[in-house]
Write a protein that binds this DNA or RNA. Structure first.
Length: 245
DNA sequence: CTCTTATCCCGTCAAAATGA
DNA sequence: TCATTTTGACGGGATAAGAG
């Protein structure tokens, strides 16, 4: 499914994109719903602001809750939690731990120079079997598992030797050949797509939250309106009682 | 049972918004 | 100003409901 979509989008770059661009030029972009809601909340007390928190049904693990706000949280088949933070930092925690001892902060190699002593994680665009993999120490990889409301990842042995596009611990400035540059570009693209995928999910979650908020606000205002109309009718009756002649 | 339609969700692109 | 994040728009797949 994913492959089919990607294939379609790639081929669309030739022809359909032009029409799409024309349409988009015509369509005017509406202001951000998040901005609207936050402005609303500053004017009207009681309207909650949209925050970076995850909804309760997604169940942020307790051991992660005290850490820096993660962008994405995955649970491995072994019960470990993997949190990908804003800066590309990956945190792995054991559910039984106290949240500090079980944590292993990892840094993705494309997120700048890792801090001294940091463990390197290699993100591979795609392995031979088409799955995305994170390479972690101990000759293991983290790969996506079954899909559902909450994405799950498994830690397992790599499906093959290093897939194309992965350069283990390449020192800065070592990419020279056109092939290496192309691989680097591909890797960056895959990373960008992955981040945007997660961002889109988060955006849709926030939008649902926003719509729910608006719906509840509509309900409250309708009740208020009804009460005011009733009050008005009552006052009318008091001020101008009907007279029978 | 098959076809059509509607709805939902997802991944992607591109542009606006935001932060450093 | 530039890099990153956010989000509207789009197209496609999956699924349910209704019509024939």
């Amino acid at each position: 499914m994913v492959a089919a979509i990607a294939e379609t989008d790639e081929s669309a770059e030739s022809e359909g994109v032009i029409d799409s661009h024309k349409r988009r030029e015509i369509l005017s972009r509406r202001p951000s719903y998040r901005k609207i809601l936050n402005e609303l909340s500053s004017d009207v007390p009681g309207v909650p602001k949209i925050e970076e928190e995850r909804s309760e049904e997604e169940g942020t693990p307790p051991s992660i809750a005290t850490m820096a706000v993660p962008t994405s949280i995955y649970q491995t088949s072994t019960g470990q939690y993997i949190a990908i933070a804003q800066g590309g930092t990956i945190q792995i925690s054991n559910p039984g731990s106290d949240g500090v001892q079980g944590l292993q902060a990892l840094t993705m190699t494309n997120s700048g120079a890792p801090p001294p002593g940091a463990t390197i994680v290699q993100y591979a665009a795609q392995s031979a079997d088409g799955t995305q993999q994170f390479f972690v120490p101990g000759s293991q990889v983290v790969v996506p598992a079954a899909t559902g409301d909450m994405p799950t990842y498994q830690i397992r042995a790599p499906t093959a030797a290093l897939p194309q596009g992965v350069v283990m611990a390449a020192s800065p400035g070592s990419l020279h050949s056109p092939q290496q540059l192309a691989e680097e570009a591909t890797r960056k693209r895959e990373l960008r797509l992955m981040k945007n995928r997660e961002a889109a999910k988060e955006c849709r979650r926030r939008k649902k939250e926003y719509v729910k908020c608006l719906e509840s606000r509509v309900a409250v205002l309708e009740v208020q309106n009804k009460k005011l109309i009733e009050e008005l009718e009552t006052l009318k009756d008091i001020c101008s009682p009907k007279t029978d002649y």
